[in-house]
């Protein structure tokens, strides 16, 4: 134990000495009063484990408390802190400054979402579209009317959809989607991936309903398989895969 303590004591100064500084550029924009966004710059010290969210909170604590940012869990579970970090949609709590490999970190609000202020964006449309595809198991029978109290599934049946059940509704996929940049009515990769999640669920009997909802001019056919949604997903949901499978159902390639 003494040796371990000694090692820890020896390492502590080294860890502190590896502290570097990064130029954090934060986009500031208030739709109520500003015509355009502008950047404020802060020099922030960081360690190799410092996340972008921690750097932003450092700015709020020590430099400018008026910076607007939404966050909650700090562990990539709540999906609140999505933003453009060096031009790419990422979760601020899940992105370490050291992994960006840059002396400048630029943070902006996510594309394709209305800005509330600074880095905080509105999620109403995302949630509306998610709600639109009926994100719940639909069945004719109910537990109350049946003797069977559970809807049993085999492990293989669970594998068909469990990946898509990891969605935390952070909106990064919708922000990266090139179609959403020009068509705000597009259902979007988040809702389409969730449609697949329930279509692929062996317990669900609402496939026809969902496929009818997404089979429209601003629905699944506007996806052109650019794949950017899957590249930015912080939970490995791979919306592009789900969308192509859904389209396979509609085209008759899949049962």
């Amino acid at each position: 134990m003494a040796q371990v303590s000694s090692t820890a004591d020896e390492q502590a100064p080294n860890l502190l000495s590896t502290s570097k500084s990064v130029l954090l550029k934060i986009s500031r924009f208030n739709p109520e009063s500003d015509d355009s966004s502008k950047f404020m710059e802060f020099s922030i010290p960081y360690q190799k484990w410092t996340t972008v969210l921690e750097a932003i909170l450092d700015v709020k604590k020590h430099f400018d408390h008026s910076v607007a940012v939404r966050y909650s869990c700090r562990q990539a579970t709540c999906g609140s802190c999505g933003m453009l970090i060096n031009g790419k949609p990422r979760l601020a709590c899940f992105t370490k400054i050291s992994e960006l490999d840059s002396d400048v970190v630029t943070v902006e609000p996510m594309n394709n979402f209305p800005v509330i202020r600074d880095l905080a964006v509105r999620f109403e449309k995302l949630f509306d579209k998610h709600q639109k595809i009926k994100p719940y198991v639909i069945r004719d029978d109910t537990e109350l009317e049946s003797d069977q109290r559970e809807f049993l599934q085999s492990p293989e049946e669970v594998e068909q959809y469990i990946q898509f059940a990891n969605c935390i509704k952070c909106g990064l996929c919708n922000s990266a989607c090139p179609t959403m940049a020009t068509d705000s009515s597009f259902v979007g990769p988040q809702a389409l991936a969730q449609a697949y999640r329930y279509v692929a669920d062996s317990r669900d009997k609402g496939n026809d309903d969902r496929l009818n909802i997404i089979d429209e001019s601003h629905g699944i056919w506007r996806c052109h398989f650019a794949g950017s949604c899957s590249q930015v997903c912080p939970k490995g949901v791979d919306p592009a895969m789900g969308i192509q499978f859904l389209r396979g159902y509609l085209l008759g390639f899949r049962n």
């Binding site: 594998e159 398989f225 794949g227 899957s230 939970k235 396979g248 390639f253 899949r254």
Partner: peptide, 23 residues
């Protein structure tokens, strides 16, 4: 082919660093 769901991988429990199977 991709639009028909051909060659876009299979659904599976994702592992970090979450490389998308469809790409």
């Amino acid at each position: 082919l991709g639009h028909g769901g051909v060659g876009v991988g299979k659904p599976a429990r994702p592992d970090y660093p979450y490389d998308p199977a469809s790409q």
